[in-house]
Design a binder for these strands. Sequence first.
RNA 1: GGAGAGGUGGCAGAGCGGUUGAAUGCACUCGCUUGGAAAGCGAGCAGAGGUGAUAAGCCUCUCGGGAGUUCGAAUCUCCCCCUCUCCGCCA
Length: 429
Amino acid sequence: MLDIVVIRRDPDRVRRSLQRRGLDSSVVDDVLRLDAEYRSALADLERTQSERRSLSEEIGRSSDKAAATAERRPQLDALSALIEERQERVRELAPELEGSPLRALLEHLPNLLDGSVPDGTDERANVTVRAWGERPQFDFTPKPHWELGEALGILDFERAVRLSGSRFSILKGKGARLARALAQFFLDRASARGYVEIAPPYLVTRTTMWSTGQLSKFADAMFRDEDTGLYMIPTAEVPLTALRGNEIIDAAELPCKYTALTPCFRKEAGAAGKETRGIVRQHQFDKVELVWLTQPERSFEALETLVDDAGSLLRELELPHRVVALCAGDVGFNAAKTYDLEVWVPSTNTYREISSCSNCTDFQARRAAIRFRRNAKSKPEPLHTLNGSGLAVGRTLLSIMENFQRADGSIAVPPALQPYAGFSILSSP
RNA sequence: GGAGAGGUGGCAGAGCGGUUGAAUGCACUCGCUUGGAAAGCGAGCAGAGGUGAUAAGCCUCUCGGGAGUUCGAAUCUCCCCCUCUCCGCCA
């Protein structure tokens, strides 16, 4: 949620950001108009409330309260009627009330883009910041991971479909073990870099989901239980970011860094027909997430650290990859700036997103009411939140399979992972 | 799922219809005191919104959430949520 005060004071900045995202900036005028109406209605209401309040206090002070009430009766009744009327008006306009037009507009305004975000409307305009590693040279034709996996008996798509339908997969034997090893490896590295490991709920309330900004945009992408109204998390970003919601954090405690391994559930409703093969895009996948809560002035520096935290995993696993700064049109709803980490996938001869690291500035913190106090005297203010994958287990697994495949269809395990896996070669049983 | 108890400021904990946004204690901030500290003393210290200069001041709202009764609600009524204890079920 954007700060309404910023919209009031610097509407041009908001318009510019919307335009860069390729969105209609005229909503800003609607917001300003509704906001002015709301504030004038609020002032009217408060004036009337104040009048009635002083009358009530007079009654409270008098010795004969019944007489005092009777005496002021007509005035009180008139004021009460007026208050009711004006309350109704305020209710219609209030930005904090669900269902009000102003709230609806505010809810759908994406975060302000940072100035350093490159221009552009879609992923073609994304800018490669740096690349790391040598792409593997094969003296044979590299196979896609699903072929390798099925041949090795570690991936089973047929039975997964039988159990749960399309976009599910089953890992078996050493495949399952390797996935577990990766998750463990990621968590250990995150801990070493100062992230506190959290085992959060995988089901969260609508309010929690709303507070991290998932609901306005991703509502139809999420699984939800009808009975309880609980949502299955699409990423651990949700519980980790909302973890400190409605709290006022001491500045000395910042930055707070959290990590969690969780399954992520996504309907992938908009992705029909895309990437139906393999384990690239699934309804359920495991991911280790990294989340920061920082002081505002440190958040962009934190973003660079976060990207390095995620990148260090790929370096250790010796997976060739690049870091891409998303262009204006490609940066998500919550984020002010995003870097994607893309890993090399030999079978498609392309880089493929394996981590997305975003600075959400105060956008989520405002919704979730995560605030901090600079010192004992100062007012609470929203802090900045960041999140990034560190990393997606399935996508890492498939990139290891493809990058480390050998002519005989076996797969070498990256040295860093071997202590976790307990084996160095994955071959047919 | 059943029965009971309870949800008040950063924490603990009073208040149970009238100037109470809230006693008291702890924590915290500032000052006095001190060689320095502790203790002691004095002052301050919830959040949100509006207005103002992102000041002071002023105004409104908030005592789990929502609705209601009343001139007036933390206090009374109803609904919901949550926590705790006991019982049941259970990985």
